[in-house]
Design a protein around this nucleic acid. Structure first.
Length: 766
DNA sequence: GTTCTAGAAC
DNA sequence: GTTCTAGAAC
């Protein structure tokens, strides 16, 4: 039996298929969004051979199965034809198998037809004779239901290119792009045209709070006055960068109106997939812009060093970013990388604004590189100005802590404070400043066309950059997901100025390192003696607590446990007496409901070790216990998820707990509870004060201790929604907002299994 | 950790 | 007048 397919039978020269790279284009859109029309129009005008795989007709004119579609698609691709997968593909799971059709020799693209639901419904309702027999009145209900569960495709799923269309003109543009694609042509990789999915900061509230500064680049809400303020700020701060901005395909949509609640919930369970969690470094081309380094030579060096490092970096990814589609360096590198057979999922080129890769490009990069100046100061233009502007003053302060200046060829890793918008909005945890060689006579340290030296320094710069990136992987604790055998075992990590492979540390920076290490040492002394050195767990009497408190240097934690703070300790020591409250008792832990739950589900997992009062007491010796606590917490979260699949959990510790005895919070993210009354309650679970259990495990395993955020100010921070990050004037208003907010969680939470949620419900196939 | 409550903010 | 916060006591 032959599958029915619509085949473009334009005559083609023999052998053509073997030269061009076939593409599998996975259409994503509700019924009525125009998928079939899109395919038909492209096929009508394209010089490439396309096969449209349509599940509605594949079964001999009738509806077929997914397996039939996959088989037909694979066979067409094998023949060198390009393929449209014409089915809804609205969620990740539905797309997954079709994505596997992509490989180094077949690009997997997505074209998202994200047209207004109303339009799709009215088209579905009106049409007759639709192949899928989805017409008439029931269409509305079906389309609505499907759109509830839609998940936008992401590059991390494995697409090399994603095109988002939100209106007819976007669709037309996409049509033009694909129609014009000859058999031998390729399209630039990347994600194009997506409007910021998370952006809905309430500027009215910001004004209410008398906050003058409005984060640059946030999408304004319906408030036009605020919109113009935001615009003005941006222009004043980064004129030269904005000069290029109009070339970017992401610009120009920033003031699109988004009403609260209108965002469809995006199921984030997909973020558990390994690719999404892969550490990713986005970097601009170094020295080729203002420093006028020869593009041919620069692209050779980039590809050469990338090739060396992709294999050393395990699952981590490198992304070369440029703001313009017309970027010469990007196309040079792409061509040269293709010739080298560098793994496509480990290195990609990307067109977009390096400060908006996630919010506008859907590309998660936890580390970005900055083409810095030697003073490590904001300003200048280009990428440096853009990154400093987008990161806010926090970056400047954090940079100063690491280094005062930079030599050509060197890089410095700067951990980005969580207060930076780049952290909260884009999920960037580190910025690595790199300084390349300068060939521009009007800039300092010009090499006067000495390309022997220049190439050497540029190579050194990329080496330093990638070494720096490798060190963030080690210190950040994504190590578990990275095959680390190739990483440099010297782990002073993030505090270090990274040098090229065969150069020596400058004395200046070594001094810096010493200071940092001393600091670390002091901190470890704060925690209960020097167990690390002795390697034994010294039992501590209750009175010992006081001594420890007196030891505190900064005084912020200098408090003894009050009588009211002993309840958990008593339960942990004598769970049998408290059987009424204990949900589970083992040798290591006791599980109980929080007496004043701050959410629908809120458990505590108590450690039973005497003398283990809080995270500050934790050392490497407790790693196994921490893992047990985590696993027990996870088990309970999963149990609750079986009862209510809509719950989402976080597991973590308070940096400075109020109650004595180490306890892990397992708390659902609805925060729907009458016991959540104060700012302190909210902020203790929704600022850096709350330390994710997964992060604590990682830190204790790599450093022997957790980094506490014992900063009182965190608890009195302004109230922000944990999902959309909008600010709210008081607790009642915040609670009213969070009961409605369905925005996706910030990128940092979506990584590394920091959220625990139910596996996504299987979507409905048309 | 909560409760109570004065007084600030609306 | 009512709502909300924050500090002290427990």
């Amino acid at each position: 039996m032959e599958m029915e397919m619509e085949i473009d039978d334009t005559p083609k020269p023999k052998g053509e298929e073997t030269k061009g790279k076939p593409i599998v284009v996975i259409l994503v859109g509700a019924p009525g969004s125009g998928k079939s029309t899109f395919c038909e129009q492209v096929m009508a005008s394209s010089t490439r051979t396309w096969v449209r795989i349509c599940q509605d007709t594949i079964g001999n004119g009738k509806s077929g199965t997914k397996a039939q579609c996959l088989k037909s698609a694979a066979s067409a691709l094998n023949d060198g034809k390009s393929v449209f997968i014409d089915r809804c593909n609205l969620n990740r799971e539905q797309r997954a198998e079709f994505l596997k059709l992509g490989n180094p020799n077949v690009d997997a693209h997505a074209v998202v037809l994200d047209l207004p639901a109303k339009l799709c419904i009215s088209r579905s309702v009106k049409r007759t004779g639709h192949e899928g027999n989805l017409q008439g009145g029931k269409a509305a209900a079906v389309v609505n239901r499907m759109l509830q569960k839609k998940e936008f495709p992401k590059l991390s799923e494995g697409f090399t290119r994603i095109t988002f269309c939100q209106n007819e003109s976007d669709v037309q543009a996409a049509h033009n792009t694909y129609s014009a694609l000859g058999p031998l042509d390729t399209l630039p990789n990347g994600s194009f045209g997506q409007k910021n999915p998370d952006a809905k900061i309430q500027l009215g509230i910001m004004r209410f709070l008398k906050k003058v500064e409005v984060p640059a680049n946030t999408v304004s809400d319906a408030n036009n006055i605020q919109s113009s303020v935001s615009h003005k700020n941006t222009e004043e701060k980064e004129p030269s960068y904005r000069g290029h901005d109009n070339i970017s395909s992401f610009s120009g949509n920033a003031s699109k109106e988004l009403k609260e609640g209108e965002n469809l919930a995006v199921c984030s369970s997909g973020s558990h997939a390994s690719l999404n969690n892969a550490p990713t470094l986005a970097f601009p081309s170094i020295s080729t812009s203002d420093f006028q380094f020869n593009l041919e030579k620069a692209s050779d060096i980039i590809v050469e060093v990338v090739e060396e490092y992709v294999n050393k970096l395990g699952s981590a990814r490198l992304v070369l970013v440029d703001v313009s589609h017309k970027s010469k360096i990007l196309s040079l590198v792409k061509t040269k990388a293709a010739q080298k057979n560098i793994e496509l999922n480990k290195f990609l080129t990307f067109v977009g604004d390096i400060t908006k890769l996630y919010s506008e490009g859907g590309l998660r990069c936890n580390v970005i590189a900055n083409a810095a100046n030697w003073r490590l100061k904001p300003g200048g233009g280009g990428v440096n100005a853009a990154i400093f502007n987008a990161a806010g003053p926090a970056l400047e302060v954090a940079t100063k802590e690491q280094a005062q200046s930079l030599h050509p060829g060197k890089a410095v890793v700067v951990p980005l404070p969580s207060t930076s918008p780049l952290f909260s909005r884009e999920g960037v945890t580190h910025v690595i400043h790199v300084l390349g060689p300068n060939m521009n006579q009007h800039r300092p340290n010009c090499l006067n066309n000495d390309y022997i030296k220049g190439c050497q320094i540029l190579r050194e710069a990329y080496t330093s950059l990638f070494e720096g990136f490798a060190s963030t992987i080690k210190t950040q604790g994504k190590l578990a997901k990275v095959s680390n055998e190739n990483l440099d075992s010297n782990s002073s990590g993030a505090q270090e100025v990274i040098e090229g492979a065969n150069t020596k540390h400058s004395p200046n920076n070594d001094q810096k390192n010493k200071r940092e290490h001393k600091h670390e040492y002091d901190r470890s002394k704060k925690c209960k003696g020097s167990q690390d050195e002795i390697g034994a767990n010294i039992p501590e009497s209750k009175i010992g607590k006081v001594d420890k408190n007196n030891d505190k240097i900064d005084g912020s934690m200098a408090k003894a446990w009050g009588s009211w703070a002993q309840a958990l300790h008593k339960i942990a020591m004598h769970p049998q007496i408290h059987k009424d409250v204990a949900l589970e008792i083992s040798d290591d832990v006791v599980v109980l409901n929080d007496l004043y739950p701050k959410a629908r589900r809120h458990l505590l997992v108590l450690a039973r070790s005497e003398g283990l009062d809080c995270l500050a007491d934790v050392s490497k010796d407790h790693l196994q216990l921490l893992k047990t606590m985590h696993d027990v917490g996870l088990k309970w979260a999963e149990k609750f998820l079986q009862e209510d699949a809509l719950l989402i959990f976080r597991l973590g510790y308070h940096s400075v707990p109020s109650m004595r005895q180490l306890h892990l919070h397992v708390i659902s993210q609805d925060f729907d509870s009458k016991n959540l009354k104060h700012k302190k309650h909210w902020n203790s679970f929704n600022t850096a004060f709350f330390l994710n259990s997964v992060d604590v495990l990682e830190e204790v395993s790599s450093h022997g201790k957790a980094t506490l955020r014992d900063d009182e100010s965190l608890l009195s921070m302004e109230l922000r929604c944990h999902r959309c990050r909008s600010a709210h004037p008081n607790i009642p208003r915040l609670k009213s907002h969070i009961s409605k907010c369905r925005a996706p969680f910030p990128p940092s939470l979506l990584q590394n299994s920091r959220l625990v949620l139910a596996p996504c419900n299987a979507g409905i196939d048309p």
